[in-house]
Design a protein around this nucleic acid. Sequence first.
RNA 1: GCCAGAGUGGCGGAAUUGGUAGACGCGCUGGACUCAAAAUCCAGUGUUCGCAAGAAUGUGCGGGUUCGAGUCCCGCCUCUGGUACCA
Length: 966
Amino acid sequence: MYFPIFALRRSEIDEYMKLDHKEIESKWKEKWEASRLYAVTEDPSRSKYYVLDMFPYPSGSGLHVGHPLGYVASDIFSRYKRMKGFNVLHPMGYDAFGLPAEQYALDTGVHPADSTSANIERYRAQLDNIGFSYDWSRQVRTDDPAYYKWTQWIFLQLYHHYYDIAQQKARPVQELIRHFEVHGSEGVRASVSAEVNFTAQAWSAMKRLEQENVLMHYRLAYRKTGYVNWCEALGTVLANDEVKDGVSERGGFPVVQKEMMQWCLRITAYASRLLDGMDSLHWSDSLKSIQRNWIGRSEGAYIHFQIENHTDTSLKIFTTRPDTLFGCSFMVLAPDHDLVAVLTTPDRMEAVNGYREEFKSKSADARAAGQKTFTGTFTGAFAVHPVTGTRIPIWIADYVLKDYGTGAIMAVPADDERDHAFALQYQLPIPEIIDRSSVVDGTMEDRKGKLINSGFLDGMQVPDAIATMLDYLENTKMGTRSVEYKLRDANFSRQRYWGEPFPVYYDGEGVIHTMDPSTLPHELPALDDFKPSPDGRSPLARLKEWTEPQPGIHRETDTMPGYAGSSWYFLRYMDPHNPDHFASPEAIAYWQDVDLYVGGVEHAVGHLMYSRFWHKFLYDLGYVPTEEPFKKLINQGMIQGIVESLLMFKEKKDGRTHFISSELAAARNIPEDMLSKIPVHTQFVTAYGQPTSHLTDKGLEAFLLWRPEYSDAHFECFDYTFSAPSFAGAVFYTNSEVGKMSKRYHNVVNPDDVIARYGADCFRMYEMFLGPVEQSKPWDTLGIEGVSKFLKKLWSLYYNENGEWRVTPTEPTDASMKLLHTTIKKTAEDIERFSFNTAISQFMICVNELRKSEERSAHILTPLIQLIAPFAPFIAEELWEKSGNTGSVHSSDFPQLDAQWLVSTDVTYPVCINGKKRSEITLPVHSDTKWLEEQALQLPDVVKWMEGKSPKKVIIVPDKMINIVI
RNA sequence: GCCAGAGUGGCGGAAUUGGUAGACGCGCUGGACUCAAAAUCCAGUGUUCGCAAGAAUGUGCGGGUUCGAGUCCCGCCUCUGGUACCA
């Protein structure tokens, strides 16, 4: 009965005409690699364009569908720019040093050197699968000694420079030393940790160690003892941006304040330049505002207060509201302020010391937990009001921070919420100084109102009063204008193994010596036991022979943090194998800076801030030609997952687990706290992610097989209930919500699986089609079918159902030409403005139209391949070759727009009466407006709607619409 | 609290400078093909009223400017992100 041969033939034909993405992908991956298609070199005859992705740290779990979102976008952009004639640098590498890589190694017990290499291999394969156009010959990895040689070199440069405020740039410490030798500290304006004053003679009289300690206050990379964020679970200190809500960003472990000697980078020296530099950048408003808040500039003044019975010292405070000086009724110092010990009177000593002890033991996170009641105590000392001469009590309190401003404030309880609360609590006077009676909804601190009880400021509005007081303070030398920043210096030490060793050592006296740059890289020694220790000592300290290479010499055992290597990697890509420079001057002169940077917003205050800081420093030294490294920045959103769960009553009923369908739970308004959400693997769910997602009987069976602990469960739906194991024909609605893509929710979509099923081109296009690149959006497993269908339709424009090439060299129709050029215009515009989803929509329209009109002309179909090439590089390359073109479609020129095809001979105008569309009229383009008006007024529908009235005026928007006002 | 961004069908989202709101895709409904299913193709799909032609209404809420507002202005509400004693 059967005809096996015939059957075989049929399936062969089916296979042939079908789009076989696997074969196409492997074919072109090999060819591209063999021909080094994406390798770039400096070419002065062409304009450069630098497209950069934030390089990943190679974690063990590999890429999930969220990671490549930004990579796909930047790849489309790179390919487009290349076709537009730019010489495009589009590199990729790995952020291999640092906490994430090391934590992974610790979790798996594999040495980080081995695990990162294995992970990198996996990442590379996954990235290649997606069809990226990276120039892999330029790959960098931060744990490569040939790379971190230059990280160490930059560190040495930071160490050997200080920041000159007058010149607003970094200068060599050698210059500073020469100045000290001649003039002492007089006349030096520099960013410092602490002010020190000495004469030239005093400088010369200092011992070497003393001199070094002085210089430490100036160096851009320096050591200091201070309170740092110590994370015991991670066994290391962390920078401020690595701590969120009192716990470590990585791992979520508690972080406490601990006093330690640490390396720091003086990023504060660059605060104003980091702030001002942003004005010229094409970054999103939200990202700029995050950085601005983090830097936290405020303008104000220092004011000096004399202290009763202390002629040798005065109290310096910072305020943004000098106009409120007359309202100052007490002063507050941070409990750990240096002057506390000096000022406290004997009778208050006991109370003050007790308070300081209590303050120290209070953990940072208890304070962060947001107790709004302030505590404090009186020191017994009094300051003298600089204008009125009244006695002002000096207190200490925990609401004043040592490391902001001067660590001391003048309290103005009438115009500051905190001072007010504190004054009420300790019954301190609250002199009124601002009349807000004329200000609607006037509150404290809003800089509105009229000054009262304020001497020469009486009657002034707040902004005027501020200006007047600032002048007064400077004229009388009682204070100076000043700007303060919230930004803190960056902690640069990690008590960890997996990072760059510092190229420094200490001699017997504790003097720091830097290693000669020619001896770099200072390699990280092999160490089998790389576990961190809770005592604050680096694992390297356990390696005695390395730590102490000769008697009296001690190496630094801390390592650099993860952001060290990532703060300059974009420069290394310009010349990645250069042994003599971090990048040659010629390469830097050509590539300049990054034109487009794509990456996650989570690096807003970490990586992006540090990179800008390092770049500005290298600019000061003349190594890079631009002040800012990243001209344009796009923050891609995250791909979220749909979390599917079954609603379970927390309390068992009749000893059984009791599930309720989401529909019924909603209908009965069952309170959320009675239910637990049991995540269910998305592969069991039917119509997953859709409003009606549910488990069928098969899904329920699979679920119970997977979760045998629920095999006694009882399920309740709208019309019926059932119990395991008998639920034939059941439909049980799940609870679906948008959430993270995570192993915990069993909703992770692996790009490899998607690519295996739909192809890389489909994967790329779908990620873009989901919505704007910047936006976060859930992965919808059904939506990808639409893009898949589109690609099959595209393919069938070129191949008929017998697998025969159907493109002919015939002349195209005018309609097709118009369609093609509309698509060229739209594609180019959309790519330029990073709107890939709308470009893809246009492709869909174009392909559908061409199918309907059965267009076969190569004049249309060949340029179409080029338009789609940035999005679907594999399919495009295959079709390009089959069209008989030589060379790669990715090296071809982007199709030229011929605008004549966009102009149609007729335009259909909607005709509106008072803004409502009542009719329409088709007329030749560029018609005389008077004539247009006459034609429109004669339309029968218009005559009907006008009811004999005459028009007040007629508005004609050229080529858009006609509006008649009556 | 403060700073920034956003609110459009059942869903993801279009509408680039104020000019026919809902493109494109998903889902849904109906139909064709099929013994049947899948796949594919065709049609419909904001809401309300209507057999229909059609009409009214509609971009978080309330006002305003304009011939015309998703878009601009004023006042609210909600959500998301950042920040949290920053003087």
